[in-house]
Design a protein around this nucleic acid. Sequence first.
DNA 1: CTGATTTGGGAAAGCGCATTCCCGCCATGT
DNA 2: ACATGGCGGGAATGCGCTTTCCCAAATCAG
Lengths: 362, 362
Amino acid sequence: MAASTLTEVARLAGVSPATASRVLNGSARKPGKDIADRVRQAADSLGYIPNAQAQGLAKSSSGLIGLIVHDIADPYFAAIARGVQAAAREQRKMVLLATTGGAPGEEREAVAAFAARRADSIVIAGSRSCRTEDQDDNAELAAELDRYCRNGGRVAVVGHPVVGATAAEGYHVVAVPNQELAGALAGELAAGWDGDFVIIGGPEGLLTSDDRVRGFQEGLARAGRPPAEILRTAFNRAGGYEAGLTLAARIKAGGKDGEGAAAPKLCIFAVNDVMAIGASAALRAEGLRIPRDATIAGFDDIETLRDFRPALSTVRLPLEEIGRLATQATGRATGSSDADEDEEQPTVSGEVTLRRSTEAVA
Amino acid sequence: MAASTLTEVARLAGVSPATASRVLNGSARKPGKDIADRVRQAADSLGYIPNAQAQGLAKSSSGLIGLIVHDIADPYFAAIARGVQAAAREQRKMVLLATTGGAPGEEREAVAAFAARRADSIVIAGSRSCRTEDQDDNAELAAELDRYCRNGGRVAVVGHPVVGATAAEGYHVVAVPNQELAGALAGELAAGWDGDFVIIGGPEGLLTSDDRVRGFQEGLARAGRPPAEILRTAFNRAGGYEAGLTLAARIKAGGKDGEGAAAPKLCIFAVNDVMAIGASAALRAEGLRIPRDATIAGFDDIETLRDFRPALSTVRLPLEEIGRLATQATGRATGSSDADEDEEQPTVSGEVTLRRSTEAVA
DNA sequence: CTGATTTGGGAAAGCGCATTCCCGCCATGT
DNA sequence: ACATGGCGGGAATGCGCTTTCCCAAATCAG
């Protein structure tokens, strides 16, 4: 027993398929009430479910929103995904998920797949990379997005524009002030601590990481501090752990140099919360305490990590809101021939949140 | 400039659309090599992207897998989603996401939406509810799933079968031994502690919660202990926090009753990790320490929570694997007319993992 | 060298629906 | 009274692709 079709419903109701279509799916023309009732009754007596594929084919639009993330299990992306999902629901659309691990090559594939499915819009979350080895893939990704936009698709990117993308129409960027916020964080940290800083960053070329690093250094400079040393590692917990081990060794070596050892030896800034947690775990595993032996701050304010002790100083980012904004940006009508189309790129604000992990201990 | 079509490619290559289709998309008939090359070249000179909607319409199968979760930002579901996503990629399919907050009514809608999009299969994660107020919605959900299966869809449910579902064909359940594992946890806990137990459970009728509660009680009984008191609350962090507050008050009141106060007053079992974390936070907020004043265990072993201190005793569930298994179960060919179709329902095993949060303190 | 097969390509019929025309009907205007 | 719209409904076309079905050429056996 295959799913029943509009034609069957129409036949049962004794009307033409055209009429059935008009009553069952929003059309400009509203058939007479009595006929409408007959059709509706026939429809649910047959358990009719419209074939979205056919509808999509006929009106060339699918009601689909494509979402690209590095890893859906990463709480950062999960939070954004929740916002996207919520906004999609408001637009009565469904979300198609693609995970790419951050590789531009796979992102390109995902965009192509979304284009094939005629997704109405695409939301790309996750840091852009501009490493030279990704150059070609980035170019192809940009080209793919360009084509998608030219064919009427809308895209929103969280954070940075895709490297090399030029599409004027339908291309939105939800700007995240990573640099400013990292600078503000550095400023507040510098106000309560006069020792050394060290940064645990992601691989060079990861734009989000680079921005946060740069912003932090600038903040330090503004506070009259020398630039911090930068440890490059993977942009995830494992990377943070590894860097933490390195720092732990250094701290312990430094401790032997004499002096009281009662004060923290280092203020660590990890470019995201997950890395900060990894680093903390490493320090603890090495017998060091936070904030006694070292202080540490992260970035993002991941919800699941808020119960972590010592409470992690970080920069709160409205992740869910970001996902929502990105999605909404793609939702607005495209054809507003209004000359000065404002195209207001939505902006987002964060907030430095100092907690126990960077508290000066007496 | 609209996306180019198969027909255009065919014309450019000087062949019929039929031939173009045969070379560009896997067909039984392989056209001659020279012609194939011509078509392929025409295709990518035009930047041809097949229209998946049309393909789906024509061969009635969409390459889509529908995933239903309560909340994608919940790390439990995020982990499962990662597994689903991975398996989907292996099957060269895309995943469609729907979040329902756990309401059977919304789940029904999601299934209908997936059916409309002709998803090849549906994976339902998230606890089933059998509260009386959900009875009607559950019945409708079951009916919807039934219809979906009769029309050739495959569905896999994580944990419990959907209440009332009867579809024989294409219906899979990935069993999670919640009850046994909770029993085992109770046993191990009882071996190292001879005081009182209390359970923080979800609302009555949430099958997963009920199973874990029941299993824990059975484990207690096997160890010769009286049944634990049960606090019912929301199945999330907020619920855990609330229950934690209640228990904190009770512990503090009990403390005044005299005696040493050096030993924990209570062993708490929260039916999932997130609730356990909430409860811990509440205890801490009330000035209580774990495991000094109370010990606590959770369930799931959420990855993001593993760095939490004191390390949470819990039951490790292979969440990602569960998602993968569920998805794979729906992927197998349906028409194996083999008589004794084994239909091996995949099974999953967990592991009791005792950590610091339930350590007996001297 | 002829007749029976296999091959390789094209024509055409849908898949399920939206939508543009078109046509007959009734309510208007003068 | 007749002509003119306006409206409710149906017929037909097309969305982009897959897939039978059919036909010509090429291959083979006898």
